[in-house]
């Protein structure tokens, strides 16, 4: 089969990668009612050439696993990916990845199956994660013939929910302008700080924020995965893939 045909079939879903089939099956059967400690999470972050999914690409992925609501700092995933188009100059200013670093890196196509394996069985966590997910799914769709079905949680929305709750509780001034950037939140909550704009360091930073918020949420009556997703509808800080990808 020639390459163009293969891509076409994949994008139409006829040639779904086995990892994706496994992925779908796993989350189809997921029990949403277990305590949060019983789930695995993968906190991840990507570095991109820009913010436009149609034109821009992923150049780096960093991820770390959270198990028993503890960050397993040794279970990490980190890579650079060589984009199809040359790196735009202005993106280097943000993520500090230089063209030299990615010139010898494998294309994203080669990496994705391993990353999908790394995500296996885990709820995805990220800060403003919908951007990363849309880039990821666009890539898996074209390279692996489908999208991932992992439910995902956004730490930014979690933080908004947490802050709303605190405001109500302590009658803090609602007009007070809060920044929900990863770095500002990390400073505000006194978390250990990591280097900015490196996919793995940012993922690690997000993992600390996630851990912090998850423990704080316990006091707010959120104890199962269902609570996290559906029990707190108003908060809407999380989503499963179907509602997002629809």
């Amino acid at each position: 089969m020639n390459l163009g045909l293969k891509r076409l079939f994949k994008s139409l879903g006829f040639l779904k990668h086995p990892s994706l089939r496994e992925n779908k099956r796993f989350f189809y059967d997921l029990n949403w009612n277990k305590p949060l400690e019983d789930y695995d999470f993968v906190v991840f972050d990507t570095e991109l050439t820009g913010l436009e999914p149609r034109n821009d690409e992923i150049v780096s992925i960093g991820a770390v696993r959270v198990r028993n609501l503890r960050i397993a700092v040794g279970r990490t995933f980190f890579c650079y990916a060589r984009p199809n188009k040359p790196l735009p100059k202005d993106s280097t200013l943000i993520h500090r990845i230089t063209p030299d670093q990615i010139v010898g890196a494998p294309p994203l196509e080669d990496i994705l199956p391993d990353f999908v394996s790394f995500l296996h069985g885990a709820v995805i966590v990220g800060h403003f994660v919908s951007i990363d997910i849309s880039f990821l799914n666009r890539a898996t769709k074209s390279c692996m013939g489908g999208i991932i079905k992992n439910p995902f949680v956004d730490t930014m929305k979690m933080a908004q929910y947490y802050e709303d709750h605190r405001r109500r509780r302590y009658y803090e001034d609602a007009a007070q302008k809060l920044s929900f950037g990863l770095n500002d939140l990390s400073k505000k909550y006194g978390l250990p700080l990591f280097e900015k704009h490196d996919a793995l360091e940012d993922a690690m930073q997000t993992a600390y924020l996630f851990l912090f918020l998850m423990k704080k949420f316990k006091n707010l009556g959120i104890s199962t995965l269902r609570d996290l997703f559906t029990g707190q509808k108003k908060a809407a800080f999380s989503s499963d893939q179907d509602s997002y990808s629809a």
Binding site: V73, T76, F78, F118
Partner: peptide
């Protein structure tokens, strides 16, 4: 259960080390 091919992408955790 799927095999985990991601070991090649693991790095020594700087934060702890």
């Amino acid at each position: 259960m799927m095999t985990d091919n991601s070991a090649g992408y693991a790095v020594t955790p700087k934060v702890a080390f």
